[in-house]
Amino acid sequence: MNNAYLYALTGIVLFTLGLYALIIYSHLLRKILAINIMASGVFLQLVALSTRARPLLDAVPHAMVITGIVVAVSATALALALMLRLRDASGSAELIEESTE
């Protein structure tokens, strides 16, 4: 037994927390933060469980997470830019339910 499950569970809680926030909050910046926290949760879980390979090091999940982090930052950058543009165009950084025209 090692700390793998501890961190994995932490990851799950983070994931769920992020999911909750993503649904509940309407401000886009907050949603973006929530996604990032979800991502952290997933990464944590991915790596934490790989420590079960001790004493060897399972590098594959590590590489995956690095890839994931870069993908996440790319997505965040795009999301933020989009948010700013949206704010420019509509005057609000929240998503408005479109009217059922």
């Binding site: 499950y5 799950i12 469980l49 390979a53 399972d58």
Partner: peptide
């Protein structure tokens, strides 16, 4: 998660 075996060499 907890149901996963505690030892796994992965790759």
């Amino acid at each position: 998660v907890l149901s996963l075996p505690s030892e796994a060499p992965g790759l």
